[in-house]
Design a protein around this nucleic acid. Sequence first.
DNA 1: TATGAATGAGGGTTCATTCAT
DNA 2: CATGAATGAACCCTCATTCAT
Lengths: 199, 199, 199, 199
Amino acid sequence: MGKLDLNKKQKRESLLNTAFHLFLTNGIQKTTISDIVKEAGVAKGTFYLYFKDKYDIRNKLVSYKASQLFSAAIQALEQEKIEVIDDQIIFIADYVVDRLTEDKSLLKFLSKNLGWGVFKSALISPSSSDDANVYDSYLQLIAASGCEFAEPELMLFLIIELVGSAIYNSILYEEPVPIQELKPHLYDTIGYIIKSHKK
Amino acid sequence: MGKLDLNKKQKRESLLNTAFHLFLTNGIQKTTISDIVKEAGVAKGTFYLYFKDKYDIRNKLVSYKASQLFSAAIQALEQEKIEVIDDQIIFIADYVVDRLTEDKSLLKFLSKNLGWGVFKSALISPSSSDDANVYDSYLQLIAASGCEFAEPELMLFLIIELVGSAIYNSILYEEPVPIQELKPHLYDTIGYIIKSHKK
Amino acid sequence: MGKLDLNKKQKRESLLNTAFHLFLTNGIQKTTISDIVKEAGVAKGTFYLYFKDKYDIRNKLVSYKASQLFSAAIQALEQEKIEVIDDQIIFIADYVVDRLTEDKSLLKFLSKNLGWGVFKSALISPSSSDDANVYDSYLQLIAASGCEFAEPELMLFLIIELVGSAIYNSILYEEPVPIQELKPHLYDTIGYIIKSHKK
Amino acid sequence: MGKLDLNKKQKRESLLNTAFHLFLTNGIQKTTISDIVKEAGVAKGTFYLYFKDKYDIRNKLVSYKASQLFSAAIQALEQEKIEVIDDQIIFIADYVVDRLTEDKSLLKFLSKNLGWGVFKSALISPSSSDDANVYDSYLQLIAASGCEFAEPELMLFLIIELVGSAIYNSILYEEPVPIQELKPHLYDTIGYIIKSHKK
DNA sequence: TATGAATGAGGGTTCATTCAT
DNA sequence: CATGAATGAACCCTCATTCAT
């Protein structure tokens, strides 16, 4: 990779990092392209060499951050010796919940922008080629579980939607209960969803 | 009520209706105050006599529309002879889901703006005094059910979040499955959540 | 004076007092008619029954307050036993300076709006008929002094302009020197102006 | 200086000239940014690349014009063979008064906006680096005069305030006397102020 | 590739004034 | 006399986007 290419990559990275930082701090609406390029230290026109507009860079960030989060969860799972698929999935959910409890800005950012559509496309075709394909890992877990599931995709969908939307208020506003109190009910329900999908 | 007061109420209603219509058609971001007043047939300054800004009118609409929707569901329930609390709640959920399936614009509008916080405040203290207090009705159902529930609020929260977020993709994009296919799983899970909260 | 007339007069007074208070607090530019009527407790239309616009009420206030200030100075002079005209004028100047040092808001208000034109018309034809004619009092002082002055009006003009503009920075910003330090130079110069006008 | 920089400077100048012209013609309050950019032939946004708001451009103009005026007076003084400091200062005052008598718009503009604070900062730190420091020139005159003065700054302050405020009505409204009639009294008083500050 | 000055439509908001009640 | 809802022109300012360098 030549020096110029490196420079190019650095500019892009700088824009991505800066945008992420500003999105978390001030929200997407209140972040302007001017803000991003000023903090990234590049000229305004340069932004348009790499991204179509503000929402282009947002989508790329959502994909990247979601992919990163789930990859880390799966890696952590591999360190553990959890055999049962039910427990494996709950472990991943718990990992993600904990991570988002620590990083509330990330929670806000992902919750507001991560629908099932973005989620699937993000995890199936990760932005960087060397990133793992998270959805594949999920299917492998299922396959290796020894159980058969009627509709694994639907099952994942239900879990994701339940968790994704319930933790938002619980973590940010402790409403209707704090996250630690919510967890048992959440994981209990996840357990039921999994069980009910087993053939 | 004098003629003037009547006129005032009409202006307000006109603004609310117009704003609702434009929010559904073009989205909130792309709807400007100019658009609203132009279509409502009032002067720009008049808007500011009734609402603080665009988000004030949105919040009032969300409250009003959500309250309306759930009130209708509860009224419909009263026409039926459903005894068991589990079935009553699922009936309400089903009524709401059907209504939102018919009116996808309303689905979009409410889904994007109706978090648990807004939801509760909307249903507990409805904007119009003659509106029913939906949350009270829920508590009455619980009380009349003959069962005791550990945490009825948390139970409702889980159901609302699960349904509210899952139906969005299913209705609008038939992803991962169309709503008719999703329903059995959804109501099955709701049933489990209710059961697990019974003392 | 009938009850209705009294009410009328009260409304007018209320508007004047409120406007004065708001002009001092927020400045004239930033005071709106809405602010005035809201604080005065009358309807918006009522304002236009008494005053043409914001600048009409300002002019009336400037006249009134200036007239009041100088009348008080002349009254205070009459309590003293000062014989010489030079000392009499300096006494008046000193009284006014002290009063404006205490009430910096009044200083700002008058300094910004009291040119020689407004000043003369204010003091020659006071708003209320029972108010003293300050300029007449000045001429009487001159007449009673036993001295003859070449151009008493010009003399007063020079004194007013010198004092009026010099004390502004001195009182408000202590620039270039605090008012107590400025006074001797000021009164010394006034003394010279008077002396040089004596025939 | 590149072509771009030149263009930039021209835009800025164009805005300054246009604003000055409009401020004189219509007053500052009634001049809008729209007016300025329209007449300057640039886009609205361009204004904000060079100035913060209307008052920013006004302050820069006041500084610039005042600096220009006094520099010219000092240059004119250098052409003359006036030895005595008293006469030198009166020469400068007279030059300024004559200039403002010719250009009544400039008189209005400076009188309304040139307090002692603005004045000093304008003349001590001129906007353009190649502009003379007028206040320094004044101090040099004092130093070269052979006299010692107790408080030269205070002396200048008194003269400036007296002249600055007295000529306004005299030039514009010939009140209480036309400027030619006022001059002898004015310069007489200035002479006294100078004399009284000599040690 | 990279720049950043320039654009200008259009956003939200204010407020003096009117007039039917 | 008094009201205050309604007006709507006009304001300031932002900011995504372009394009000559």
